[in-house]
């Protein structure tokens, strides 16, 4: 199989690390060679965070380079815009339709770009959802990333049961049930 390349972009603290581990976990379970590249340390403190997942018959490089991603999962609009050029022409962006202002925007030094979603749609195929509101309806906003994973899962070809198994293995025990619900909400949407 040709190596599949996925990028997860977000803001430090949004759970990009956990998400990349779930995606790596499902590929490992299916018997693929896998590489997951993470970000730790200072960059995590509210900064732009990007992680990479690659799987296939034999994977060398842990990174996904510009123009090579099959799927871009973005937890925030500005981060989607920052990494959209990493997607292949026929790649898909799965977007959590949320805005988090960087410090320079908060203080008014620069402004947050207008109408990012239509900018993104001009460039690539975009699936956008306000996952935060949906997660809030489920009872915990923090599980919004499982909704996004559920949406991305539809174009990755593993079975629903396999996904649920990996989620159970990866998330904290007391959070399993709500994460499963969140995943299914995205998967069935």
């Amino acid at each position: 199989m040709q190596t599949k390349n996925i990028i997860i972009a977000g803001v430090g603290g949004q759970g990009t690390l956990l998400t990349s581990r779930i995606l790596g976990g499902i590929a490992r379970r299916a018997g693929y060679d896998v590489k997951v590249s993470e970000v730790h340390g200072m960059a995590q403190r509210g900064g732009s965070v990007v992680t990479y997942v690659r799987y296939g018959d034999s994977v060398g490089e842990p990174l996904v380079e510009e123009g090579q991603a099959d799927i871009l999962i973005a937890f925030e609009q500005l981060e989607a815009l920052r990494y959209i050029h990493f997607l292949k022409k026929d790649g898909v962006l799965v977007l959590n339709d949320q805005q988090i202002f960087p410090a320079a925007v908060i203080t008014g030094v620069v402004s947050y770009p207008d109408d990012i979603v239509s900018e993104l749609k001009k460039r690539r195929k975009v699936i956008a959802i306000d996952a935060r509101s949906k997660a809030a309806e489920l009872g915990n906003v923090r599980v919004f990333n499982s909704i996004i994973v559920g949406m991305a899962a539809k174009s990755m070809g593993f079975s629903k049961e396999e996904w649920l198994l990996v989620i159970r293995e990866t998330v904290r025990a007391d959070m399993v049930e709500i994460n499963e619900k969140a995943f299914l909400l995205g998967y069935n949407s």
Binding site: V11, G12, G13, M42, A43, Q44, R45, G46, G47, S48, E66, G67, L78, E79, L81, R82, I84, H85, F86, P102, A103, A104, V105, V110, S111, Y112, P113, E119, R123
Partner: peptide, 18 residues
């Protein structure tokens, strides 16, 4: 050549105190 779309000009998001 290694060709890809030029990155868009996007406000930076450096690390910040929590």
């Amino acid at each position: 050549q290694y060709e890809y779309d030029q990155p868009l000009s996007v406000p930076a998001r450096p690390p910040i105190l929590c």
